[in-house]
Design a binder for these strands. Structure first.
Lengths: 343, 343
DNA sequence: CTTATTTTTGCAATCGCTTTCAGATAAGCT
DNA sequence: AGCTTATCTGAAAGCGATTGCAAAAATAAG
C-alpha cells in the first residue's frame, strides 16, 4: 500500500517564537546575531528550533532585508569542460562569502541569455558573472550600471568602477604557439580554425597569420580550414588539409577538441605524431596531458579566473578592496611537436 | 573621472499600478493572467511596465503564493564531464516547465551535501534531484517524505510514490565488458579499480570477478590495483600491474579517466594498443571516441537520465503521469581491444 | 428604463521575516 | 536605596507580491 506523502507545512519563525515563549523579534535576532540576547532565551529558542525542525524561509528573509545574497552566473554550457572549470572556480570563490551562485546556461543563444538575465533580475541577484556569450556590449554596460558585473572571456568596456572584464590575449598566445612551431623548423603549418563568429577563433587565426608574416612567410588561405570547435570538424579538417598539402609538417588546431579529431585522423592514416606530423591545440583540456603523445597546448587559467572574479564581485558587494590579478595564457609544451631540420 | 553607480531601487508593482492609474491587484492579474481585465487597462499597464522597466520580484511572488518554482539539483562536481552531461539533461528537461534549477555541488563531501540540502530547504525548492553522493539513505527517505526526490546513480529505496531512484547495473556492465575480453581470448586481465568507498567501484570489481569465475578462471587479487578515478592513478596502476604480470594481455580500468592514464603508461613503455595490450574503460567520456585508438568503454546515458528525471519531478509536481523509462548501459566496442588466439 | 446578471475592479489581509522605536530589565555608581 | 546608563525584549510597521471578498461597472433581460 502506498504511503501517502505528508505535505506538512514548513515551520515558521512565529511558531518557534511561540514554542520558546518569546517574541518573533527575539528569534530573528538570535538567528542573525543582530543583537545580544539573554543566554537562557537563546537556549530555549535553540531548543525550539531543534524540536520543530525549523528552517528559515529564504524568500521572506530576502524580501525583508532587500538583499538576495546571491550572484547570477551566466554560462554557456553547463556540460562544457571549458566553462566547467571556471564554474568550479567561481563556486570556490563564493564559498564562505555568504553569497551563493545562481547558475543558468545560455547555450550560446542570445535569446536564452536575455531570458537568463530576466530571471537574474527577477531573482534580484546582487551581482553578475558572465562567461563568454553574445550579449551586446551595450546591454552589459547598462547592467553594470545597476550592479557589479564581471565578464570572463570577452574584452568589454563596462564603464563602471564596480565592474570588470577579464579576457586573455588569444591573438598573442596563438602567435607564441605558432612561433614556437616556426622555431622548431616547421614551415608549412596548417590551421583548423574555430567558428567565424567567435571572437576567440578570429583572434587565434590572426595570431597564426601574424606569426607567419613576421617570419616573412606568406599567409596561405588554403592552409586554413574551417572547423566548429568540435572533434569531428578537426578530423575532417585534417583530411582536407592533408589532401591539399601533403608536405605540411604541423597542424595548429584552434582548440583541443578539434586537435583530438585531428589526432585520430592522423592515426587512421598511419601518420605518427610527432615524427610525421606535429600537432598543437588550444585550451589545454584536462585530457590533453594524457593523449598519446601528450598534446602541446595553451592553458587558460579558467578556474583561477573564475575564482578571482567571484572574489572580485564579493569584494565589490562588501566594499572591500581586491588584490590585483593578471592572468596569463601559458604554453604547455608537451610531446606532440618534433623538431624539423631545415634543408 | 569615474562614473558613480546608480543604485536606483527596483520598480515595484505598486508603482506600476500608480503609473497606470489602476490598483495593484489589477496589475497582478494582468501579469499572471489570473482574471479578465479590460483591454484598455491592459494596454495602460503594459505601457507603464515598459516605461518603468518593471521586473517582478521573485521573492515576493514566491512568498505570496507559497511556491518557489524551482527544483534543487545536488551534483558532486560542477566541472566533471560525467555529471555535467546529466546537468545538461536536467536543464533541458526543466526548460519550459516553469521550474528552474538551483544547482549546488557537494564535492563528494557529506558535510557540504548536508549544507546544500539546508540551502535547498531554505530556498523552498519544490523537488530535489540528487546526483550520486554520500547522503545517508535514511535522510533521502525523509526528504522524499516532504517533496519529490529523484536520485541518479544510486539505488535507494525512497519508500515514497512521488520519488524515484535511477541506477544502472554497474556490476552487470562490468561483467559484460570482461566477458567480452574473455571471448576475445584474453585470460590475464588486470583491473584498475576505483575508490573503495565508492559503490560503483565496488560493483565494477564484482562484475569483473564474477565474469572471471563464471569462466572457471581464478580471481587473482594481484591483478587488481587501487585507483582513485583520476588519470595519474591509472598510469601508476598500470605500471604496478605490468611489474607483477608481464604476461597480462588486457586491462579493465574502472573508468575512462584512469584508462587515459593507463594508455599513457603503455605509450611510454612502447607497448601498442591493442596489439600488445588491450584496454577498456568505463563511462564513455566524450573524449573516448577520439583517443588513439578509440577506447572501448561502457556508456551510461547520463544526459537522457537527467532529462527524464527532470521531467519526472515536474510531472510529480503538476500531477501528471510520466512515461516509463528503462535506461541501459551500452557497450561501446571500439578499437582498443585485440583478439588473442589461444594456444 | 428598471432589474437581474455577469464582468471588472479595488480594498485589505496575508505570506514569513527584519528592524525601528520605545518600554522593560538589569547593572553600575554615589 | 535611588538614579543614571547600558542591555534586552516586544509591538508593530514594513518588504513586494497574491487573492478572497465585495463593491462598481458593464451587459443582458424584461
Amino acid at each position: 500500500m502506498a504511503h501517502s506523502v505528508t505535505p506538512r507545512q514548513p515551520v515558521t519563525l512565529a511558531e518557534v517564537a511561540r514554542e520558546a515563549g518569546v517574541s518573533p523579534s527575539t528569534v530573528s535576532r538570535i538567528l542573525n546575531g543582530t543583537a545580544q540576547v539573554k543566554a537562557t532565551k537563546v537556549a530555549q529558542v535553540r531548543a525550539a528550533i531543534e524540536k520543530l525542525g525549523y528552517k528559515p524561509n529564504a524568500f521572506a528573509r530576502s524580501l525583508a532585508k532587500g538583499a538576495s545574497s546571491s550572484v547570477g552566473v551566466l554560462t554557456q554550457d553547463i556540460a562544457s569542460p571549458f566553462y566547467g572549470d571556471a564554474l568550479g572556480g567561481i563556486e570556490r570563490g563564493l564559498m564562505g562569502s555568504g553569497y551563493s551562485p545562481l547558475i543558468i546556461s545560455g547555450h550560446w543563444r542570445t535569446d536564452e541569455e536575455e531570458h537568463a538575465i530576466e530571471l537574474f533580475m527577477s531573482r534580484r541577484v546582487e551581482a553578475l558573472i558572465v562567461l563568454g556569450g553574445h550579449l551586446p556590449e551595450e546591454e552589459l554596460r547598462q547592467l553594470a550600471q545597476q550592479l557589479p558585473v564581471a565578464v570572463l572571456g570577452r574584452p568589454v568596456d563596462l564603464a563602471s568602477p564596480g565592474s570588470i572584464s577579464l579576457a586573455l590575449d588569444n591573438r598573442r598566445a596563438a602567435y607564441d604557439l605558432v612561433t614556437y612551431l616556426l622555431d622548431r623548423g616547421h614551415r608549412r603549418i596548417g590551421h583548423i580554425m574555430g567558428p567565424q563568429d567567435h571572437v576567440d577563433a578570429r583572434d587565434r587565426l590572426d595570431g597564426y597569420r601574424q606569426a607567419l608574416e613576421d617570419r616573412g612567410l606568406p599567409f596561405q588561405p588554403s592552409l586554413v580550414v574551417q572547423g566548429d570547435f568540435h572533434e569531428p570538424s578537426g578530423l575532417i579538417g585534417t583530411q582536407q588539409l592533408l589532401a591539399q598539402h601533403p608536405d605540411m609538417t604541423a597542424i595548429f588546431s584552434a582548440n583541443d577538441q578539434m586537435a583530438y579529431g585531428a589526432r585520430l585522423a592522423l592515426y587512421r592514416l598511419g601518420l605518427r605524431v610527432p615524427e610525421d606530423m606535429s600537432l598543437v591545440g588550444f585550451d589545454d583540456l584536462p585530457g590533453s596531458a594524457y593523449t598519446t603523445p601528450p598534446l602541446t597546448s595553451v592553458r587558460q587559467p579558467m578556474a583561477e579566473m573564475g575564482h578571482w572574479l567571484a572574489r572580485f564581485v564579493v569584494a565589490q558587494l562588501t566594499g572591500q578592496a581586491t588584490e590585483p590579478f593578471q592572468p596569463q595564457m601559458e604554453l604547455r609544451l608537451r610531446e606532440s611537436v618534433a623538431t624539423r631540420h631545415l634543408p
